[in-house]
Design a protein around this nucleic acid. Sequence first.
DNA 1: TTGAAAGCGTTACCAT
DNA 2: ATGGTAACGCTTTCAA
Lengths: 355, 355
Amino acid sequence: MKPTLQTVADAVGVSRSTVSNAYSRPDQLSPALREKIHEAARRLGYPGPDPTARSLRRGRVGAIGVLFTSALSYAFTDPYAVQFLRGIAETAERHGSGLLLVPLSESEEEAGIQAVRNAAVDGFCVYCVPAWHGALDVTRSRGLPTVAAERPAEVGPETMYVGIDEVAAARTVGGHLARLGHRRVAVVSDFLVAQRRTGPVSVADPAEIRYDVTRERLRGFAEGLAEGGVGWSDLLLCNAGTNSRAEGARAAEYALDRVDRPTAVLAVTDLLALGVLDALAARGLRPGRDVSVTGFDDIPEATAAGLTTIRQPAVEKGAIAGRLLLEPPEDPAARQVLLPTDLVVRASTGPVERK
Amino acid sequence: MKPTLQTVADAVGVSRSTVSNAYSRPDQLSPALREKIHEAARRLGYPGPDPTARSLRRGRVGAIGVLFTSALSYAFTDPYAVQFLRGIAETAERHGSGLLLVPLSESEEEAGIQAVRNAAVDGFCVYCVPAWHGALDVTRSRGLPTVAAERPAEVGPETMYVGIDEVAAARTVGGHLARLGHRRVAVVSDFLVAQRRTGPVSVADPAEIRYDVTRERLRGFAEGLAEGGVGWSDLLLCNAGTNSRAEGARAAEYALDRVDRPTAVLAVTDLLALGVLDALAARGLRPGRDVSVTGFDDIPEATAAGLTTIRQPAVEKGAIAGRLLLEPPEDPAARQVLLPTDLVVRASTGPVERK
DNA sequence: TTGAAAGCGTTACCAT
DNA sequence: ATGGTAACGCTTTCAA
């Protein structure tokens, strides 16, 4: 029989409350008694209050749930995701909280939803989960504090998020390329269409794109490029099945192998952009000379690759998400955080070569 | 007031048990009633049984805890760790269990220990936590099934672990280099000394190394190299502050910039070895010709880098760890698993150039 | 400083 | 097929 609070209380000859206090509010009893209790606990092999029972009573668990799409396997392949997670882990660590990973596989949506239902956590962080995912209904109905890792399309006064101004950031990319003279432009992005296939797609209007971040970034690209007279319908859209380097390369092929090859390829993430650079290399094309390439996020690898990109503070973003959950600010306005971004120009972009 | 089982029961006019059954044992009641209950739950905004209360009652939480050293920040940057995590996640997922990451910060040990105390889990997986960490006392006293991700120094009949024969594997690396004629040899490793600093260190005897895995691997390196007459004291030891590519490069500098530059550098992980290769590249040295380099783990990146290394089945290791926790074998012997390893020889090692 | 009593929201068991 | 009752192990008033 496993020892409980009661066991210890009986052994010492005090009440449960006193033993409980010995653990949770040491200042509430005499040092002598406290020591006596701890000694008895050691002797009896009592490991301290049961976490589950304590959580039930206190109404606090000491863990936060992180929701992300895709298998865990892929979750960590994106350095940006890793950095974000690291930020949130650091905050959790300071609070003595754990991180409950909740993968939402696409193939088994119901399993993911169940996982969210059963998650014993004090709050949720929603990382890159499309707005239409059923799991979000559950997080809502559970009524726990929830923070999104990007600005949601619909923001109520209660909504917590930490994000960036996607449109504005993307606009600087578009503008940069427009000023360099680029007029034939391709975009490599995941989530352009509902299906997870890699290849060229046509989208009549950015508003049709369901996934928030993708939509906003593409909007921004278009707005910036408009400076050079490039319209939405001029863009060559290449969908990537997943946000991965390999699919970035595959998607880019459709643009690079055309006779009227684009002079610039805008990727919606750095990971995809690295793939685009791979595709360039495979064709002997020089980034920034033959074809300009841009990314988004500024992951560590971007520096070595000389990738022009948008820098956003990923670790800090995670840290803030954690803080929003663990130390919610009084002021509602402070619960909606927009982080600054910078356009980092490196060698992967350059002026269009005059013929 | 948040709705509970009772709320729903009252609304429908049935007992709590029935509502509970509607969720946990749907076959125990008529489809009609079940639907009626679910409908009422939806209407009242009842999110389903409270996970904490359910855990308390059932005596099972549905989550396993993974203990990480402060490296959590770094944990995700090591592809080997990611693969291991993936393996354990796959098993957990099959069992409908979650993965609770418990970060153990080095700076705030007490916070980590608290986190372990409070972790609502059914078992622990201890990943790369040094044997002297206080959190391990807690896992022990909690009496939950615990599996180590490597063979611990002290193994009782109860101890569960899944590891490899570190010494034997490392010995094959040492022997390989010895036979290639290498006599001036450096080792790049983390945890050689207690402090987290990067640079050359001296360690009188491998037994002094406190961190198990490091100690065993170095022992193996030395045993293998002894074939060529290289003794422990001949080794040039370079400590890396963290297990990361960057620190691997920094640590290697101390070896590569010497006048009597070593002809071989043995790294204790692939991540460090990639760093060593970076340092070589920065100096225009050719791996396998000017300097031989070896790693350990065989992460995916090792292939492209042409790194000679020890392959160990990382995903499988994680999967087995998960299985040990979630479906403990009857036979105690089966709870201690040693996985096979292979020496994978690639281009980063070669014979010493004759002068 | 210590103790008694009242739950926290479930589920398991045994009746009906 | 459904309901009543008793835990699960703890914390938290409140009173002594």
